[in-house]
Design a protein around this nucleic acid. Structure first.
Lengths: 141, 141
DNA sequence: TTATTATAGTTCGATATCTAACTATTGTCA
DNA sequence: TGACAATAGTTAGATATCGAACTATAATAA
């Protein structure tokens, strides 16, 4: 049961998926955005208004990393900051209209990626894969 | 069939596995080594003598990245460079005795990681997971 | 034989990422 | 109320990573 290469495959899949995302974003005229930025935008498509801390947790990055990523997205005019009026320590992040306008593109790319990854999978196989990955994750996290 | 979270799980598993590796290396007295360095050493445990180009391909990193990683491992006295006598463009990388001495530790950690990831998996489940991951990889790479 | 092309590796500049240290604000409790 | 602890976010320094440009060497072709 030892020495299978599942983890190797997992690394390769993840990297190829990231390449796919970057490539498709560029093909849709979105330059300079990497998957981590996409993660932020996707959170905001579901959440509207989010503190730095919440955002960091949701994309599984540290606050320090998030500061850099957010600065980049602000420079790209896709999101903006807003100080909380209740608590002066807190900063909210929200989409700009430009950021919102890309929602459809992100959904499309996400959908295409899934279609590609599992294109020849039966319902059953997809479900099995997800179940086994969940089990794996529970073992290590 | 859409919108499953397999890719999300894959990212989480990979990151947790990397954390595990770094943590175990430290617990075994190997500091400052990250998984990419480990990949290089593991290649050399199987290969003895390897050019920069071959190494880069085997660990799926660019030559530019490999240059940095190799410099680090040389600083740690785990590997060394050697100019080819046939072709002056070529540099061989090989383990130092210190690097060789860690072979057992790397094997142990790799084994422990697999045992942890798939600890409650049946033979059958492990095989299924690997098969489905291979299929996924073939779809995207 | 010389000019062109190909190949191996490094350097440079940019960026994502982290930890640790820091600032500023808020909360707690004696 | 005032000191200390907790929390939110940023900054600094380090490192992995990449693409592009570069250097040096080897191979090929005219």
């Amino acid at each position: 049961m030892k020495n299978n290469n599942a983890l190797y495959l997992i690394s390769r899949i993840r990297e190829a998926a990231n390449r796919f995302i970057v490539q498709e974003l560029e093909a849709n005229g979105i330059k300079g955005v990497v998957p981590s930025h996409g993660d932020i935008l996707v959170v905001l498509y579901a959440c509207e208004k989010c503190t730095m801390k919440e955002l960091a947790q949701k994309i599984h990055r540290t606050k320090a990393t998030l500061t850099v990523l957010v600065d980049k997205l602000i420079a790209l005019k896709l999101i903006e900051k807003e100080k909380s009026s209740q608590d002066n320590r807190v900063t909210y992040i929200r989409l700009t209209p430009l950021g919102e306008s890309y929602k459809g593109v992100f959904e499309k790319i996400s959908c295409e990626l899934n279609n590609l990854l599992f294109k020849d999978f039966s319902e059953e196989e997809t479900k099995t894969l997800v179940t086994l990955l969940e089990k794996t994750r529970a073992n290590i996290e």
